[in-house]
Write a protein that binds this DNA or RNA. Structure first.
Lengths: 387, 387
DNA sequence: CACATTATGAAAGCCTCTTACGAAAGTTTC
DNA sequence: GAAACTTTCGTAAGAGGCTTTCATAATGTG
């Protein structure tokens, strides 16, 4: 946790440490020469060379053709990180669809597939649809399952530490499913499961609106509103994986957002969400964007209600940035503008409130990032581990 | 941040690493023999010996007299961590008083002083009272300022990253004071400043009700209610140091708690807090403890109001535990019981809600712990640093 | 007082990193 | 087209650190 070693080490840990440092330097991209690399890691050239030959043997690094001469002197050998050495699979599973991405170790998406799902699908069918989508995506990328190094899946609900869906109200029958174990049967590598809003937050920090921002709250505005938080650049799950579920408090206005936007009123406790509420909500938002007064008023009203819940999260966590995404933001930024207007006056600091830039890809991409994080942790770990 | 090195190292980093590991093992307490220590850090005896002689030269470790024989064989040399090698100063400063602790590197309190302060005191006088209290506490411990390795202070309000009091409504004139710089003039060592509720959370995790719990929310129930959060065992300050200020949202019932308890109603925005509200609130709590119905009803009502704010934090962060402390809890655990009754139904997980066990010492002890954390970070850092 | 037991002290050997120097492979210049 | 120049490569020597090993020292037991 603290990075402070409990155990000392013999000279061999130096070798590992230097290997890791070299790999890390190469992961930055580019195709540095041996001497450039040696300077980067502050090691001597022979040592760097040794680390590189080990990494090459492990398939993580490759020597590339020397740059066709334009500089003086003997051409330098260049090396690059073999991003294609392994792959990560990111999956989104929700009530309406599943979305799968395959990415290489650099996070470049090399395949994907999306499939619409019926809301009423039983977990077993839902799972086999997911497996099918994964198969298709892998085929598109020309890969087999054995070339996957990690898999991550995002889904609505509270996910416990084992990857079981502890609470889920929006996908029928989903609660209680041990998603990590189920998917684990299909893949010969670690399988992680995480709440969808949490993953969206991860994605927006990776390559979205919150790039490199360390403290982020992501608000997933859909039928209900969920939220995910990154604290110090790391995902905050909470003790039982339930962090960000402020939506549970009725007076904070994050329940049945779409329904209220659509003017259906707050239903007491719908076992099955009504998809038409989503569509109706989107229509209202479109009308608001067109300037229709009644629609604007409705958006204003809902934003005012949601604002309290978001403000509660902002005041609790004091993030640098709030990202608003989810189905309700896909048709424009009316909602974000209204939320900004309502939330900012309630905050203490100059928190920025921005729209998601990844749209409906954020959960899937966040899953990719989570899987990559796991791979990197394994790769850059100092102790060799049982692999 | 990640503990992964960017730079490689020559054999000398091994030595530092092993020194650090040895020191860390000794910090655990006890007076191990050389061989016991070598086993602890998984190093050979000669290497451990080398690390020890370096640490001894730095004054951090000392050889103690061998345990008077009761075992067979040649008596083993024993070593111990010299907790008296350095000291930390922890300070609490609020509207009514200042409290100072001096502790050695093991956190053992070796001196302290508390002084009542007039609420209306100007910052300059308040500061000199604090300096006086520190001087008295140091004298009691038989130490000079130069033997302090770090100082930390806790005070109400939002503290920015530089140790300036960005927002403070409860101590007149306090807002805008650059507390870290002011105190820095008096001490030849790092000076840290932190929000009081944050420090109370740190203290309760250190040696209070939340020992070794990683995700904790501390609710400081005083005139207003502040909160501090520990996430993953680390203090979460937020981007602008304003994390935990849920009390700002009026509908969450964490403003003017004492005033409402005392039946004074919610004052719109008191420039100066009224100390009699505190006292009246305590009387109500005592009456409630005695079972007086009217008082019980009042407590119940306030707890119900506060519960929403606390629940908002719990739902946002999903902590393992909520600690309730502050002036309102000193007279008994009525408030805690009522809060537990009101908050738990609103939560998703089995969050524990407990009373502070450190009482009005928590902020000062948290300051000690924060200073010690800083010292440890410096001590256990691998790179030598400019010290 | 000898013996068993445990710890210390010092030397030998191994691993890894750094420095140093000559050879190699290009480009530029004449 | 060859010599000069420049930069990199390959390898050997040297230094720092850790481990193993064996003889020695100090203490309790019979």
């Amino acid at each position: 946790m603290t990075g402070i070693p409990l155990h000392g080490g013999d000279p061999s840990v130096l070798r590992r440490l230097n290997s890791v440092a070299t790999l890390r330097a190469l992961r930055g991209g580019g195709e540095p020469t041996l001497t450039e690399l040696a300077n980067l890691v502050s090691l001597s050239r022979p040592t760097t060379e040794g680390a590189l030959s080990e990494l090459t043997a492990r398939g993580l690094v490759e020597e590339v053709a020397p740059e066709a001469g334009r500089r003086l002197g003997r051409p330098a050998r260049r090396y690059r990180f073999r991003a294609e050495a392994g792959h990560a699979l990111g999956v989104e599973i929700n009530a309406h669809r599943t979305l799968v991405y395959v990415a290489d170790l650099d996070g470049r998406v090399v395949g994907g597939h999306r499939a619409d799902l019926d809301v009423g699908l039983a977990p077993r069918e839902r799972l086999s649809a997911v497996r099918g989508a994964a198969r298709t995506a892998l085929a598109e990328a020309g890969l087999t399952r054995s070339e996957l190094w990690a898999v991550a899946a995002g889904t609505p609900g509270v996910i416990d530490a084992d990857g079981r869906i502890a609470i889920c109200t929006v996908v029928p029958g989903w609660q209680g499913v041990h998603l990590a174990r189920e998917l684990g049967r299909s893949f010969p590598c670690p399988v992680l499961v995480e709440n969808d809003a949490n993953l969206a937050a991860v994605a927006e920090r990776w390559r979205g609106a919150a790039e490199n921002v360390d403290d982020v709250v992501y608000v997933l505005a859909g039928l209900h509103t969920g939220a995910g938080a990154l604290i110090g650049g790391r995902l905050h799950r909470g003790r039982w994986g339930a962090a960000g579920e402020v939506g549970t408090l009725p007076e904070l206005g994050l329940r049945d957002t779409a329904a209220e936007l659509a003017g259906l009123g707050t239903s007491p406790g719908p076992e099955r969400p009504e998809p038409q509420a989503d569509r109706a909500a989107e229509e209202i938002l479109a009308a608001a964007r067109a300037g229709e007064p009644a629609a604007l008023a409705r958006v204003d009203q809902v934003a005012g209600r949601m604002a309290r819940g978001i403000a509660a999260m902002v005041l609790a966590l004091d993030p640098e940035m709030v990202i608003v995404g989810g189905a309700l933001t896909l048709t424009g930024d009316v909602l974000v503008r209204e939320l900004r207007r309502h939330v900012l006056p309630l905050c203490l600091g100059p928190t920025r409130i921005e729209a998601s830039t990844l749209g409906d890809e954020s959960v899937g991409l966040g899953a990719v990032r989570l899987a990559l994080d796991r791979i990197e942790a394994d790769l850059l770990r100092l102790d060799p581990g049982p692999s």
